[in-house]
Design a binder for these strands. Structure first.
Lengths: 120, 120
DNA sequence: TACCAAGCTGGAGCAGCTCCAGGTCAACCC
DNA sequence: GGGTTGACCTGGAGCTGCTCCAGCTTGGTA
């Protein structure tokens, strides 16, 4: 499939996909006879995973490391497991930050409502 | 209090605090006779709010807008309410992203465990 | 009086995109 | 066949949001 469809399916922008390829986050994508990229289903799965990791704050450096491990085959499974486990911890910390922020917002919004009611 | 303590209490780095001041996210902080910044409790509360908003993905542009509204007093409460409400929605979208990523990680980790067990 | 830690400013550097100019190529219309 | 449109290409500049650094001032301690 073309880059535009890969973009739609993975949720990454076209520019970001090309940028990720240049940065070594995905192996060089196959090209058609016209020189344009042709993405396989496997490519898109990988892009979707990257989108999910990046969208939840994994740094590119870590993603590149993970991609390198992936390319080395099954013997790197324990290391990859480590990377993902640590990211799972990161998700939990992020969830806490979200909760704390939501609390603050709830408090502020309540106070705003009170002010507005007083004014009426 | 000094910038180092404001940093500890708000969770923002010293450099980030100075950067935020330069960027107009907080009003110019008072200075002591030695020319150094002296942060009031109100300043630190504001910084803590900024830290929470930024840490959950509010762009600086929006924070600057919010700060501008704040400086204009109570008449901007409805607009500020709008800003915070929209950010609350953003928090929910982020939570969904977190959940989806956690699901993917759980699945991947399970598969890794299977591979490892097979090998043993 | 000497020294060290903490603070200051201005500016450079970095991550992670995002956008743009200028070009190629395939497809469709007349 | 010729013209136009639109998707794609590359290389490079620009943007956001920090982060770090050089070179200086100041306050407190020995």
């Amino acid at each position: 499939m073309r880059i535009s469809e890969a973009s739609t399916q993975s949720g990454l922008s076209i520019d970001t996909i090309r940028f990720y390829e240049r940065s070594g986050l995905l192996p060089p994508v196959e090209r058609g006879p016209d020189g344009r990229r042709r993405f396989s289903a496997v490519d898109v799965d990988w892009l979707t995973l990257l989108a999910s990791l990046r969208g939840t704050g994994m740094p590119m450096k870590t993603m590149r490391h993970f991609a390198d491990l992936y390319r080395q085959g099954d013997k790197t499974v324990p290391q990859r497991r480590e990377v993902l486990l640590e990211h799972a911890n990161h998700l939990e910390r992020q969830r806490n930050a979200l909760d704390r922020c939501a609390e603050i917002l709830t408090y502020k919004l309540k106070r705003y409502d009170e002010i507005t009611e007083d004014a009426v």
